[in-house]
Nucleic acid binder design. Structure first.
Length: 550
RNA sequence: UGCCCGAUAGUAUAAUGGUAGUACGACAGAUUUUGGUUCUGUUUGUCUUGGUUCGAAUCCAGGUCGGGCAACCA
């Protein structure tokens, strides 16, 4: 009750708009261009737009901003819808800017009729030149003097396909000396004889972003059109179009996009990583794409929590990856099944355990979940433990196994190391230990206290699995801002493949299952798995206080 | 040397003229059959210079620094 969460600046605007009666309810939109996969940065925008509508009882449209047929594909449309649904959001309507092409054409005609737009025959080089620079005003050319009738005819001819790509454009007539470059007679329509993923060959002229986005918002009666900071200078043009066309006044608000350290967050760069095979695809678990994070084992809940925690403001930011890791650990800790997997095994022979005997020991599936149940672990004379968990000459505060020392095997017995058997080359062959029969987990009457508890696997039942351990994709915090090519900063060790020896219950793993490999990290089954070869992705390690102390 | 946006602990984000708070990180301790979890504590901050005011992170002015803007991309 008492914890009143403060509002971000957009929520403040919305609450004010609702309170003043400006709107009875709000309508937002998420407007991706279908030219790539969605990434964690988009998830901030998705959570914001959908989250706002949920919070204030409004609705959100999904609108594909598909005004450039050259780069856009249906494959991307499908992946985007999958990702949004997976994140847990439902859109009120699925729209496309291309749905409005006819209407947009009409808007352009209206502008021409008002003397506010003209057809320009200049080359793109000439247009750029005439625009001037931020410090030098632009100059208007003779084409701006064409009559309304001529412009109407020319624009109709553009649509009819009488001209080649680049021969003509439609421009707004605003102010060639505006300090805002976007107002120096911006292009409204260009000719592209290209096949569109939805309208096919119906059109050969396509509206530019600035003539499509705001009007699409307006057509849908979007109340709050939320975009990123780089569109701030577009806002006067957004408002200009709406004002001159006298259509529903949607309003644009800008927030700072999400940046995450040790990765890149631009579709162009991510596409390069895919195309040049630095990763295996858009859903490579090292990618910051939503599909990559999903395959890596991230949960929608953790990503939504992350989006909530990073906040919404207007200043540039670079979020630490550790925050994302915190969010996913927090969720996975609650839901994942505990399993024991040894990565770098050494054999332990329990000398006083009866030959040929195997017993089943129950172990909780998840100590965080009282209803999680248990599974059985076979235990016998020969088991495997982690090589790291034994040291012949341990430093102080080493809570694991050492010659003469005692340690608990998780959910099993306390053992004591009696002898280290080595190969000729001096490497440890096996540890010979004795167990304390009355120290059995749950019925321990030994009275012994040990400092360490180890994970282990019964040697005879160990299941070999492939484990893919991922590390950050880049060696530097902000690859995009480094000198030279961002790809020079790729971390060569972002993927390490190891073999794990898992307890037998791992064979029941299903694609949706999430595991905590005890004392190691969180893992999930990868889609590359087959019946006789299980492959796990490491989502994130467990926090490790010991390796830091060393 | 134009215009626009921004600047609060290491990183984010609050405080809306009246006690600078929260989260993550880091560090220390307690608990623990995961060196995990949980719990407790500690550390570190208003870019700068003036002004307005009883009182400024907040308002005003100058400066500094960072980002954006001159695609027939979105």
């Amino acid at each position: 009750m008492s914890e009143e969460k403060s509002l971000n600046f957009i929520e403040e605007i919305i609450e004010e708009d609702l309170k003043s009666g400006k709107y009875k309810s709000i309508l937002t939109r998420f407007p991706p261009e279908p030219n790539g996969y969605l990434h964690i940065g988009h998830s901030k925008s998705i959570c914001l737009n959908f989250g706002l509508a949920i919070k204030y009882g409004g609705k959100t449209n999904l609108r594909f901003d598909d005004t450039n047929p050259v780069t856009e594909e249906t494959e991307y449309v499908e992946s985007i819808k999958d990702d949004i649904r997976w994140l847990g959001f439902e859109w009120a309507n699925e729209f496309y800017a291309s749905d409005y092409f006819e209407q947009l054409y009409g808007f352009a005609v209206r502008l021409i009729e008002k003397g506010l737009a003209y057809v320009d025959d200049s080359s793109s080089e000439d247009i750029a030149k005439q625009k001037g620079s931020p410090t030098v005003p632009g100059v208007r050319n003779q084409f701006a003097e064409r009559s309304i009738e001529e412009n109407l005819q020319l624009f109709a001819d553009m649509r009819a396909g009488k001209y080649k790509d680049g021969e003509k454009v439609l421009r707004a007539k605003i102010d060639m000396s505006s300090p805002n470059m976007h107002l120096r007679d911006p292009l409204l329509y260009r000719i592209k004889h290209a096949h569109h993923h939805r309208t096919g060959d119906a059109w050969c002229i396509y509206p530019m972003y600035d003539f499509a986005h705001g009007q699409s918002d307006s057509i849908e009666k979007i109340t709050h059109s939320i975009c990123t900071l780089e569109f701030i200078p577009h806002r006067p043009l957004y408002d200009w179009c709406i004002e001159k066309l006298e259509i529903f006044p949607s309003k644009q608000y800008e927030f700072a996009r999400l940046n995450l350290n040790y990765t890149v967050m631009s579709k162009r760069k991510l596409l390069q990583l895919v195309n040049e095979n630095h990763v295996t695809g858009w859903d490579d678990p090292r990618m910051p794409t939503i599909s990559g994070l999903r395959r890596r084992g991230y949960t929608p809940e953790s990503i939504r929590d992350f989006a909530e925690r990073v906040g919404v403001a207007r200043r540039e930011n670079l979020i630490e990856f550790s925050l994302l890791e915190f969010c996913v650990r927090e969720h996975l800790n609650k839901i994942s099944l505990r399993r024991m997997v040894v990565f770098n095994p050494i054999k332990v022979v329990i000398t006083n355990y009866p030959d040929g005997q195997t017993e089943q020991l129950a172990s909780e599936n998840n100590p965080e979940d009282v209803n999680g149940g248990v599974r059985n672990l076979p235990f016998s004379k020969e088991i495997l433990i982690e090589a790291d968990d034994f040291m012949e000459n341990p430093p102080r505060k080493f809570f694991r196994l050492a010659p003469g020392g005692k340690v608990r095997l998780k959910s099993a017995y306390i053992i004591q190391c009696d002898e280290v058997v080595k190969n000729d080359d001096g490497r440890i062959k096996e540890l010979r230990c004795s167990y304390i029969p009355e120290s059995k987990s749950g019925t321990d009457t030994s009275g012994l206290k040990v400092q360490g508890t180890l994970h282990w696997v019964n040697a005879a039942d160990a299941v070999e699995v492939e484990v893919r351990e991922y590390d950050r994709l880049f060696r530097v915090e902000n690859p995009a801002s480094e000198e030279g090519d961002f790809k020079d900063y790729i971390n060569p060790d972002s993927l390490t493949v190891v073999t794990g020896y898992a307890e037998p219950s791992i064979k029941e793993a299903k694609p949706q299952d999430r595991f905590q490999f005890l004392r190691k990290g969180y893992y999930c089954l990868d889609k590359d798995s087959s019946a006789n070869k299980l492959i796990f992705n490491r989502t994130v390690t467990l926090k490790d206080g010991w390796s830091k102390a060393k």
